[in-house]
Design a binder for these strands. Structure first.
Length: 681
DNA sequence: TTAGGGTTAG
């Protein structure tokens, strides 16, 4: 809380200060405050803190333009006010405002303070604002500001993070004197740009090293995949600090050794800080141990360590992978309760979580409320809409994105094109695929060709799909052949299908799915000898099929069911309930596909009866355990079989329940006997 | 001046 100096104390200045310190203001409130400040003689007395508080309030209220018009309305604003305003504009991620303010400051003859200059460099580096940083650089040169070692090092850091290694080198070699900090910055530049060997050489030649130098090398060797050298840097460092421990723990996670990482975390003991916890949580997410990520978060809370935005991002990522909507909602709630700052990274994590948990409306709400949206946020919403079967809405967002001046990238087009596949929008796919190169100058990668092959194939345009594979500039990978095979299956082109799957087996002999593809194909043709031949081949080669797993969240607990699994404590009740389900299905004229029971082994073990397919057990458990009207949300690791798909449609209407199933690749929203995929998957 | 965070086709 700001209080004006005694001499300036008046009810008005106090009330102004209070208003200004309050959270967000509307632009009308800002205007009226501005008028009050101008007309009440404040300016003559210059209560600098009040002026600064008002400016801060402009940024907090997302009206940066008020800050600059306010500054312009003050005769000779003090240099400190200029500087703090410029720094605020950086912190609020409002670069256009920053540029205007910075130019205004220079025109006003105010030299930026050293704090401001380093803040600018740091921000440019942090936000990879390459052009901005460069224009800043030239402006600074123009006004004749002298670069000392610290500023040059900042500049070096900026160019390093912007990925501009040549400029980093130029700055570094042009430095009249170098200290440890400068050498460290150059090591960091080299390491970040993949020139790990060179970084190592520089480190070896350094006349002086500090803790930071050793710590940098831990990460540097980790990038080389050389964990032994990372560990050596850790051990040799004479000033081991918390950062050293955190760096080595992270290195083990990055090289997929969570067990050693955990061991070090335990050994670290009281030296742990919040970053150590965040490293553990994000590390488990990286190693796909989502349950451990969540339990580590619970331990973090028990240890009374305050979680940060970074913690939340990792947690949300775990929820997204698990499809744990209730947990994700809890995290969102926690963020609001603890007033954590939802920046573009955290916002993106929320959007992604909601999309991957099948709650698109919540994702859209987060998206709308974001102050700053970067390419990640746009991509996540576009990918998410497509994945949930809303191809047209994805296009709407693409249009909005370009209208807002955000340039789409390769990921955007993957999202769009894959979304079109899920909605059968062939014409749009063609249009955007050509727009990609013609309008946006993005070279299509294998993933884009893969999307197109999928889109064309699924629409029955198999010939065109094959032609595209033959004419594309790179060799098709297993994914491309795999999607073409699915299309052959859907459109019953067994001849082409057999050719495709043989290609697949050659490229990817370890992938169990490919063998399953082929034996399914033979089964559909009643070529049983070939079926058993391939099963034998699978056993010989030691290729194991992945069992189907489905999970459902009830009362904040994740229940996982594996196909044919009878070990759940409530299995007997579930089984009785499945009988009832089967009875009701029969009443509605559904006959299970017997052929599928015996031969469709794509997703489940052959011998487990179809009624024990994991998604069916999970849905039955949901019907039993969740209150009426509550949507049943199931996450499955593989694709749903066609029989389960039609059963779930019937269940949604007979039991009047919405069911959302996330399978390996997309969402199915079942309601009133229909599925959002329109049986197109 | 060093440690921890986000989107990608079957």
């Amino acid at each position: 809380m700001y209080f004006a100096p005694e001499s300036l104390r008046s009810p008005l200045s106090d009330s102004l200060a209070i208003t200004v310190q309050n959270s967000t203001l509307t632009s009308r409130q800002l205007r009226s405050l501005h008028a009050q400040i101008l007309t009440n003689g404040f300016l003559r007395c210059r209560p600098a803190p009040l002026l600064a508080a008002f400016i801060s309030s402009c940024f907090r209220s997302h009206c940066p333009h008020y800050a600059s018009s306010f500054l312009r309305s003050i005769p000779n604003p003090p240099p400190s006010l200029w500087n703090s305003t410029v720094r605020l504009s950086l912190r609020s991620e409002k670069f256009p405002a920053f540029l205007g303010l910075y130019g205004g400051m220079l025109r006003d003859g105010v030299k930026p303070s050293k704090t401001t200059l380093s803040a600018i460099l740091r921000s440019c580096a942090a936000y990879s604002a390459t052009r901005l940083g460069e224009s800043f650089h030239s402006q600074v040169v123009k006004v004749g500001f002298e670069f000392d070692v610290i500023l040059q090092t900042g500049l070096l850091d900026f160019y390093a993070k912007a990925g501009d290694l040549p400029s980093s080198r130029k700055v570094f070699s042009g430095m009249p004197e170098r200290d440890v900090v400068a050498d460290n910055a150059m090591i960091s530049a080299l390491s970040k740009n993949g020139c790990v060997e060179e970084a190592r050489k520089l480190f070896d030649e350094m006349p002086q090293r500090n803790a930071a130098s050793w710590n940098l090398m831990i990460t540097c060797y980790c990038k080389l995949g050389d964990i032994d050298s990372s560990r050596r840097m850790f051990s040799l460092n004479p000033d081991k600090d918390t950062i050293s421990w955190n760096a080595i723990i992270d290195a083990y996670f990055k090289l997929h050794d969570p067990a050693v990482a955990y061991e070090l975390f335990v050994r670290m003991g009281p030296a742990r800080n919040y970053v150590s916890w965040n490293t553990m949580i994000s590390g488990y997410v990286r190693c796909e141990e989502y349950g451990k990520a969540i339990s580590t978060f619970q331990e973090m809370q028990a240890a009374n360590v305050r979680p940060t935005e970074v913690t939340m991002v990792s947690l949300l990522s775990a929820c997204a992978h698990l499809g744990a909507l209730a947990m994700g909602e809890w995290v969102h709630n926690y963020i609001t309760r603890k007033r954590l700052k939802v920046d573009s990274v955290l916002g993106n994590a929320l959007i992604d979580m909601y999309c991957k948990c099948g709650n698109v409306e919540a994702a859209l709400e987060v998206f709308d409320q974001l102050e700053t949206r970067n390419i990640f946020c746009w991509n996540s919403i576009i990918v998410g809409l497509g994945m949930n079967g809303y191809g047209e809405r994805a296009v709407d967002f693409f249009t909005m994105m370009t209208e807002e001046g955000v340039k789409p990238d390769g990921v955007t087009f993957v999202g769009l094109l894959s979304g079109f596949t899920h909605s059968g929008m062939v014409a749009e796919g063609r249009r955007y695929f050509s727009q990609m190169t013609e309008t946006y100058r993005i070279e299509p990668g294998i993933e884009h060709y893969g999307c197109m092959v999928d889109l064309l194939g699924r629409a029955g345009l198999l010939k065109e799909a094959i032609e595209l594979i033959q004419t594309m500039p790179m060799k098709a990978n297993p994914q491309v052949w795999g999607s073409l095979f699915r299309s052959c299956q859907i459109h019953k082109d067994t001849e082409l299908g057999e050719k495709v799957v043989r290609q697949l087996l050659e490229l990817d002999p370890r992938d169990s799915g490919n063998y399953v593809f082929l034996s399914n194909l033979y089964a559909s043709l009643s070529r049983w000898d070939d079926v058993s031949c391939f099963r034998k081949l699978m056993i010989e080669k030691g290729v194991r099929k992945i069992p189907g797993r489905s999970s459902i969240e009830v009362d904040n607990v994740m229940h996982e069911f594996v196909a044919g699994d009878t070990t759940h404590p409530q299995f007997e009740q579930i089984n009785l309930f499945l009988d009832e389900v089967a009875r009701k299905l029969k009443e509605h004229g559904h006959e299970p596909d017997k052929a599928l029971v015996l031969h469709d082994i794509e997703d489940e073990e052959k011998d487990s009866a179809i009624r024990y397919h994991s998604e069916r057990i999970a849905v039955a458990f949901g019907l039993m355990s969740l209150p009426p009207g509550k949507t049943i949300r199931v996450v499955k690791n593989l694709r749903t079989c066609s029989d389960c798909h039609s059963v779930l449609k019937i269940i949604s209407s007979v039991f009047q329940r919405e069911i959302v199933v996330r399978d390996k690749k997309r969402f199915h929203h079942f309601k009133d006997g229909y599925c959002s995929c329109k049986d197109y998957w």
